[in-house]
């Protein structure tokens, strides 16, 4: 598998407000009972979108104005909690291709990178303005440019931050770490053979 080069993501925005949105909220544990990721998209934010007996609640992911959106905008520490890749899988399979926010939990953003979904950082006031813009003009196009490290919308262009190694591997299309790391079989062997606990502590 050769992953594609992702230099930019363009699309409509969707906003999920609030700090510390954990992965249990993004996908409740009872939907982790399936042995493939295939249906995870249906379960994104399930308990926030549906009440008892499947009653539809007010939530951006249910809002007709935001269907087809691909750029999710969030606040602080998004994706904290469980390491479940089901969370980014659910968002990706729902249609999200990039996430812009104030900050992300480590494991969550690492998981996103493995799926080719960039996590991009903006300062709080910039996030708030972007959120307001999307809610005011739902269908408007947002662009996340990974090469120039900017987020563009309307006539605004804001400087963004992104983890440099994530940016590099997405832009160059080297985010399939399995293939990449397999290239170094000899070096892996060399490192292993110098580890005392793999050689019965005989040096």
């Amino acid at each position: 598998m050769t992953p594609q080069q992702i230099a930019a993501v363009k699309g409509r925005g969707i906003v999920v407000r609030g700090n510390d949105v954990d992965t249990d909220r993004i996908i409740p544990a009872r939907y982790l009972r399936e042995i493939t990721f295939a249906r995870m998209g249906e379960y994104a934010f399930y308990d926030e979108r549906f009440g008892a007996q499947g009653k539809v609640k007010t939530h951006p992911f249910n809002d007709p104005r935001f269907q087809g959106a691909s750029i999710l905008v969030v606040n602080e520490n998004f994706g904290c909690g469980s390491s479940r890749e089901h969370a980014p899988q659910a968002l990706m399979r729902w249609g999200i291709q990039a996430i812009v926010g104030e900050s992300f939990a480590d494991i969550f953003s690492g998981n996103c990178g493995m799926l080719g979904v960039p996590t991009i950082y903006l300062a709080k006031p910039d996030v708030e303005r972007l959120m307001d813009f999307i809610e005011a003009i739902p269908g408007a196009e947002i662009e996340v440019d990974l090469e120039k490290k900017v987020v563009k919308y309307g006539d605004v262009e804001i400087q963004a931050r992104i983890n440099e190694s994530m940016r590099e591997s997405l832009v160059k299309g080297t985010w399939d770490t399995t293939s990449l790391m397999l290239e170094a079989k000899d070096e892996i062997r060399k490192t292993a053979s110098a580890l005392p606990y793999l050689t019965n502590f005989v040096s």
Binding site: S165, M166, E168, S169, A184, E187, I188, T191, A194, L195
Partner: peptide
């Protein structure tokens, strides 16, 4: 002790 190499992206 466990570093195999540096990857092109700096990781």
């Amino acid at each position: 002790a466990h570093a195999v190499r540096e990857l092109p992206n700096g990781q």
